[in-house]
Simulated assay, not measured.
Amino acid sequence: MRHFAEYSKLFMEYLQIEKNVSPYTIQFYQKDLEIFFAFLKQELVQDLNDVDSRVVRVFLTNLYDEQLSRRSVSRKISSLRSFYKFMEREGITEGNPFVQLTLPKTNKPVPTFLYKEELEKLFDVSDTTKPLGQRNQALIETLYGTGIRVSECRGLRLGDIDFSIGTMFIRGKGRKERYVPFGRFAEIALETYINEGRAELLDKVNDKTDAVFLNARGKPLTERGISTILNKMVEDAAITVHVHPHKLRHTFATHMLNEGADLRIVQELLGHENLSSTQIYTHVTKDYLRDVYLKSHPRAKD
Rank of each mutant, 00 (worst) to 15 (best):
L221T: 06
F213V: 04
K219C: 07
R178T: 06
G197Y: 12
G218L: 04
V180A: 05
F163R: 07
I226A: 11
R217M: 07
D203T: 12
V180Y: 02
E152L: 11
D203L: 14
N195A: 13
P181T: 02
T192A: 13
V180F: 00
R175D: 12
E191H: 11
M168D: 00
T167N: 13
K173R: 08
G225K: 08
F213R: 07
G147M: 01
Y193R: 03
A186F: 02
S227Q: 15
K219G: 08
G147A: 09
L221N: 02
L156P: 04
E191Q: 15
L190I: 04
I170R: 05
R184L: 12
A186C: 09
A216S: 15
E177Q: 15
V150P: 00
G159A: 10
T192V: 04
L156A: 04
E196I: 13
M168G: 02
I148M: 11
A186D: 03
R198L: 05
I170D: 05
P181H: 01
T167R: 05
F213I: 03
T167M: 15
G166I: 01
I148W: 01
G166R: 04
F182R: 03
V180Q: 01
D162F: 13
I148R: 01
E177D: 15
G172E: 11
F213A: 10
K204P: 08
R175I: 08
E177F: 13
L202Y: 00
D162S: 14
A199I: 03
K173G: 06
K173N: 04
G218M: 06
F182T: 04
G183W: 01
G172L: 08
V205D: 09
G197V: 05
L201C: 00
G218R: 07
N215T: 07
P181G: 12
T167H: 10
L214T: 03
V212G: 00
I165A: 06
E177W: 11
I188Y: 08
K173A: 12
K173E: 09
S151Q: 13
D210A: 04
K173D: 11
T192K: 14
R217K: 15
G166L: 12
R184E: 14
D210P: 00
E187L: 10
L156C: 05
I194C: 05
I226P: 13
K173T: 13
D162I: 00
S164N: 13
L201K: 03
T167W: 03
E196N: 15
S151C: 14
G159E: 15
I188R: 09
T192L: 11
L190F: 08
G155F: 08
R175H: 14
K173L: 11
V205W: 11
Y193W: 07
L221E: 03
I165V: 14
F163H: 07
G166F: 07
P181Y: 00
R224N: 09
L214Y: 02
K208G: 00
L201Y: 02
A186H: 00
L214M: 09
N195K: 15
V212R: 00
T209R: 04
T167Y: 11
N206K: 14
I165M: 10
T222I: 01
R184T: 14
R217Q: 13
R171T: 09
V180H: 02
L190V: 06
R217S: 12
V150K: 12
G183V: 03
N206D: 15
P181N: 03
D203K: 15
F182M: 02
R217W: 11
P220F: 01
L202I: 05
R154W: 01
I148E: 03
F213N: 10
K219N: 15
L221W: 07
Y179W: 12
D160L: 07
